[in-house]
């Protein structure tokens, strides 16, 4: 569902579409966040705001620092300098599990399904504030049984939504790669996050499942969540994102609604290259296509 870009544009940004433009209702604000590994500057973001209640895509070529930025924002890595906040709370020095408890839940590029736990157990692990997870009450089942049943009901609902309910009692290891992606997303939803960060949710997923994954992501927004996701495929991004942030060499080089960003010459140079919209076979010279201009135009 391509959002009507003119309408959302006016709601999201308070200025022109430039890197670091302030948003009307930001959920994440990052200032001068840098992270370097040895001599390599992996992330160097001057200012970035992520709007609440919309789907924001983070794109950029390999090595642009997207995943590093993800790790910094979710507390899995700490920056060398800078400050950043989530929902008005400064996050410097806050461990990742507390960031998650605040309502910012992430998934991983390499799926982390807990293989030797059942699908249902995976889901139940996602719920927040379980009294049975405290050591002393854990051996007194009457203190957590009722809550656990409620969590199980919620988990089964979510599994049904993601069409995994028939797999509930199987080990997560028995799921296919795409199903694991779904499970990881569903598990993250168990905590009712206000912001869900998906690191390449579509990587390694077959086209049929991609469609349903996209629907699920759009669904998240309908349920009132903010979504930030990393993706490579511009087609997908333009289909579901309301706002696109483009990174290259650690910096934010452009941001704006998808339609505008894709026309931005800086983006085309940095990321899409001169072969945008061309069949990969043509680029590599393996397929000879005489009317190259035509195929470009059709895209």
């Amino acid at each position: 569902m391509p959002a009507s870009s003119n309408e959302t544009k006016s709601k999201i940004a308070t200025g022109p579409n430039a890197p670091g433009v302030p948003k009307t209702d930001p959920i994440i604000i990052a200032d001068n966040v840098t992270r370097h590994f040895g001599g390599l500057m992996a992330v160097d973001v001057e200012h970035l705001e992520i709007q609440r209640g919309i789907i924001t895509a983070l794109i950029g070529p390999n090595g642009a620092g997207k995943t590093t930025l993800f790790n910094l924002l979710s507390g899995f890595d700490s920056p060398n300098s800078g400050k950043w906040s989530f929902d008005g709370t400064a996050l410097a020095g806050i461990p990742s599990f507390k960031v998650s408890q605040m309502g910012q839940v992430r998934t991983f590029q390499l799926t982390k399904a807990l293989s030797m736990l059942s699908v249902l157990e995976n889901m139940k692990l996602g719920a927040k504030g379980q009294s049975g997870e405290r050591l002393w009450s854990s051996i007194l089942p009457w203190t957590w049984r009722k809550q656990d049943d409620e969590i199980e009901a919620k988990a089964m609902d979510l599994l049904a939504r993601f069409k995994l309910d028939t797999k509930a009692d199987d080990f997560a290891a028995s799921l296919s790669g795409g199903q694991r992606k779904l499970l990881e997303m569903a598990r993250a939803l168990m905590s009712d996050p206000s912001l869900i960060m998906l690191d390449e949710p579509m990587a390694g997923v077959n086209p049929a499942l991609t469609e349903s994954l996209l629907e699920h992501i759009v669904d998240l927004k309908k349920h009132g969540m903010s979504v930030l996701f990393v993706e490579h495929d511009m087609q997908m991004v333009s289909h579901i994102a309301d706002w696109v942030v483009v990174m290259a060499e650690g910096k934010v080089v452009a941001e704006g609604p998808p339609s505008a960003v894709m026309k931005d010459p800086a983006v085309i140079d940095a990321y899409l290259g001169s072969h945008q919209g061309t069949d990969l076979g043509v680029v590599t010279g393996r397929i000879d296509l005489p009317d190259l201009s035509k195929s470009k135009g059709s895209k």
């Binding site: 899995f76 990742s96 599990f97 998650s100 293989s115 692990l125 990881e184 905590s191």
Partner: peptide
């Protein structure tokens, strides 16, 4: 199974 995944769940 994976402590990072559990950490990400809070």
């Amino acid at each position: 199974e994976d402590e990072d995944a559990v950490r990400a769940l809070g």
